[in-house]
Amino acid sequence: MLQIHCPYCEEHREEEEFAYSGEAGIVRPESPAELSDEAWGDYLFFRKNPRGLHQELWLHASGCRRYFKVLRDTVTYAIHGSCKIDEQLAPVGQISGIRS
């Protein structure tokens, strides 16, 4: 079970308090009508699904109910940091989540 740091509550909380919401940073196209079916389909269905570092959205569902971003390694599940929705994730360095 993951331990996740909510950047709004400024605390590490258990995974059970959160809901996962997929890849972060997906921007809705400005003019959907101008996109081909294929390009629109890319936006709808295709995700990076990386083996390794993944920027993803989590919702603090049982807490402050804010969405925020997490940088997690999809192989080791180590979490490298989290930030508010309007901030940028720090580059990989310290591993957080475990007090080490």
Partner: peptide, 13 residues
């Protein structure tokens, strides 16, 4: 409710 929050918080702040 969660769907509405998702759009407001992440796409149309």
């Amino acid at each position: 409710l969660q769907w509405m929050e998702l759009w407001l918080q992440t796409e149309w702040p």
